[in-house]
Design a binder for these strands. Structure first.
Lengths: 208, 208
DNA sequence: GACTTTCCTTGACACTCGTCCAGAACGGTG
DNA sequence: CACCGTTCTGGACGAGTGTCAAGGAAAGTC
């Protein structure tokens, strides 16, 4: 006993493997967000890590497995973005302000990562193998937006007769447009996103 | 005189060239909408035409030139989609109904083409060379939506205090979500798009 | 220190890609 | 028919791809 296999089974060394997988996935995420799905090769990813390209097939079955892993890591870091704001805000306007701050902040600072998400979601329209993972993440993003919005309505003391997919689609559309402008170098992208989202919230939540 | 070069200059035979270019662009559009940008090769495109792969470099400088040409053809067929409805509708509700009909119709019947548009727009976030063309088309789509919405407000006799980019982003977000669901095989995608858009119009246009 | 397992590198493979080109096929003019 | 410019073919090229396997390096065990 005491073999590495046994260690894996009892979950000690397996963490080491998981850590390296995570390390490589981070390099992949970085590369993908810079180059996009269509132009990223496994050698590019390895070049952004401290290993050679062969190691990727040691930790991942194939390219799809790697990218799937990436996308899950992305989700984890993404889906809780506004939870802090939702938990601490004590008024509707405070929640709105915190939400808008985070929204515009991530638009500017993580624009590369966001474009990767939209890229991969687009790929899922063509490639069956991504569809399930993308749909799952999309759903969790929808729920994230819904938590913000329903809490906002609650704080404002008004009912919210909107369906979660609709609310998500609206904000996603606004964010995507702002991202396109941001990446095109438009310096007003964040500012206009802020005012557009504020305006739409004012319309969608009755009498707020 | 009478040479082909002269004919080109006086714009007769040039139409023949333009026609073939258009023919090849149509094959490219078909292929791209089926496979997506990342997985479409020039040989795939040629296979969907009646020519061999070599001819593409006779009529197009390179792949980017071809795809750019494609995208322009797409625009032409796309941007006037609701103009008929706008021109003939004599009441706000009639306009809304006609718009929703066209919207859901194109969602179902041209879903492949729409996903290509979103794919290419996504590529433009990474690839500089697409950016200008994509931005131009996006703007013309924005204007298309704006024509519908401003005419709607006019017929309803209410002011429309919304910015065109915001209105476009909202509807685009809703349509994109519906497209994702449609392509994933959701049979309710069109129905839900219809009701979501109707609901949002009701919110964005005051007292309509 | 020998031995074993784990980890990683290197180079090769079969393949696809965009691009280019020599020349065949075509079509109209003399 | 001979000629010539235009149009198209099919193969070649070099570069780049995902995948894999043989073996070296490192780490751990006795």
């Amino acid at each position: 006993m005491g073999s590495a296999v046994a260690e894996r089974l009892e979950g000690r060394a397996v963490d080491k493997v998981a850590q390296r997988r995570s390390e490589l996935a981070a390099a992949a995420l970085k590369t993908l967000s810079e180059l996009g799905y269509a132009r990223t090769s496994l050698r590019d990813i390895a070049a952004n890590s401290e290993f050679s390209h062969g190691v990727l097939h040691y930790y991942f079955r194939d390219k799809v497995d790697l990218i799937t892993h990436c996308v899950r890591e992305y989700k984890a870091q993404c889906v809780t973005r506004y939870d802090q704001v939702v938990a601490t805000a004590s008024s509707a306007s405070e929640l709105a302000a915190g939400f808008l701050d985070k929204l515009t902040e991530t638009l500017v600072q993580e624009s590369a990562l966001h474009r990767l998400w939209y890229d991969l979601r687009g790929q899922s329209m063509f490639e069956e193998s991504f569809r399930a993972d993308v749909a799952e993440i999309d759903l969790s993003l929808e729920r994230m937006i819904w938590r913000v919005l329903s809490r906002y309505a609650e704080l404002a003391g008004v009912p919210l007769d909107l369906t979660p997919p609709t609310a998500y689609a609206v904000f996603d559309g606004l964010f995507l447009q702002a991202l396109l402008r941001q990446l095109a170098g438009d310096p007003d992208a964040a500012r206009d996103l802020r005012s557009a989202v504020a305006a739409v919230i004012g319309r969608l939540v009755p009498a707020a």
